[in-house]
Design a protein around this nucleic acid. Structure first.
Lengths: 197, 197
DNA sequence: AATCGTTGCTAACACACGTTAGTTGTTTTA
DNA sequence: TAAAACAACTAACGTGTGTTAGCAACGATT
């Protein structure tokens, strides 16, 4: 009867959530079974329920922990006394780093949130909508200041966010350029596409 | 006993495949059940099997019909006597229009191919890898000609392709800009980010 | 050493799934 | 109009799913 191994400040639930992220990314939320997860954790499926309430709870935890990180970051950046392009660049760099360093979680939050159930679903969609509006507002400011080309701000946001989620392919690829090079290339192309002249 | 309605040159199987695309996009391949599909088609689940071999066959059809369209297009564009930036632009415009006009299929092919089974899976992954290499080769040519900034070509491809899959959000949004405006904005930002000076 | 909460186990339930068999009804062909 | 081909139906099977109940072993606390 081997227990779930934990380290300092990491609850057994945390271990489960972390493994769930990996599994949900690999197979998708629906295709990943609790028995799969149990095996990954090293325990029988039923035992998981000593630590979690349900499979969907795992998805909640993942989606909202990611969403909260991004909301906090945009709070921080909005308050800084820098110009719009710099704000966009900071936000992009944060997104890129999150996608590189917390790949599994961020990916799952991005692709599997559809399987949330209400009220979590509406909640998540709301947060997402608000986040994108705030991002768009930064860009619109930049357009007014003539820092940024005259483009449709929501479209620009959509491009940026989805482009970044492409880091998934980078993770999967065998011949990776370094994380630093990836970041610089992405910034060059994406910010380069915004700057006026 | 109401039959599946068909129009000229549209087999009953085609009707099923089309409805499957819609359903797979909405719920994901795993979460969409054959009973859901049957209801959408207006028939009992078992009846579907008079026209198709399996659920996965539906996914094959969708994924490969999309993949083939893109492969044909890149064949065509590679052969044209135009410079690299123009080739990239043409390819992007094709991607954008496919995503706008054949949304369901393209989206499913993009997001649900993981659920293909071998040998289809390996096959699909191969085609995808080759396509991206050919796309990258166009960009690398542009870099050599100094048309395009010195960037990592595979990263650029990754950004372009994923940015375009963001049109999903445009489809979902309530206040859409026009398809034409969307296309022009995307080209402005994406191609603008590539051009050297 | 006894106790108690925690965490694991086995067994099982109820249900939804993809799919098959066999039959009935409808359309097309001869 | 009878026969053949097609496409729908009902019923059911086997399997995999998330989850619960009840019990056994472990670790920490007294």
């Amino acid at each position: 009867m081997a227990r779930i191994k934990t380290e300092k400040n990491v609850s057994r639930k945390d271990v489960i959530v972390t493994k769930a992220a990996i599994l949900f990314r690999e197979k998708g939320f629906k295709a990943a079974s609790m028995r799969d997860l149990a095996e990954a954790v090293g325990v029988e499926a039923a035992s998981l329920y000593n630590h979690i309430k349900s499979k969907t709870e795992l998805l909640h935890e993942l989606c909202f922990s990611v969403a909260n990180r991004f909301l906090h970051k945009i709070d921080e950046i909005e308050a800084e006394p820098i110009n719009s392009i710099e704000k966009v660049e900071k936000l992009l760099r944060f997104h890129i780093n999150e996608m590189i360093n917390h790949y599994e979680e961020v990916y799952v939050s991005d692709r599997e949130w559809k399987h949330l159930a209400d009220p979590y679903l509406s909640n998540f969609q709301n947060q997402r909508r608000i986040y994108r509006k705030r991002f768009a507002a930064i860009i619109e400011n930049g357009i007014r200041n003539k820092e940024i080309k005259k483009i449709d701000a929501p479209t620009a946001v959509l491009i940026m966010l989805h482009a970044i989620s492409g880091i998934e392919s980078w993770h999967r690829s065998t011949q990776k350029i370094s994380a630093e090079a990836l970041e610089e290339n992405m910034i060059t192309i994406l910010v380069g596409g915004l700057i006026n002249k």
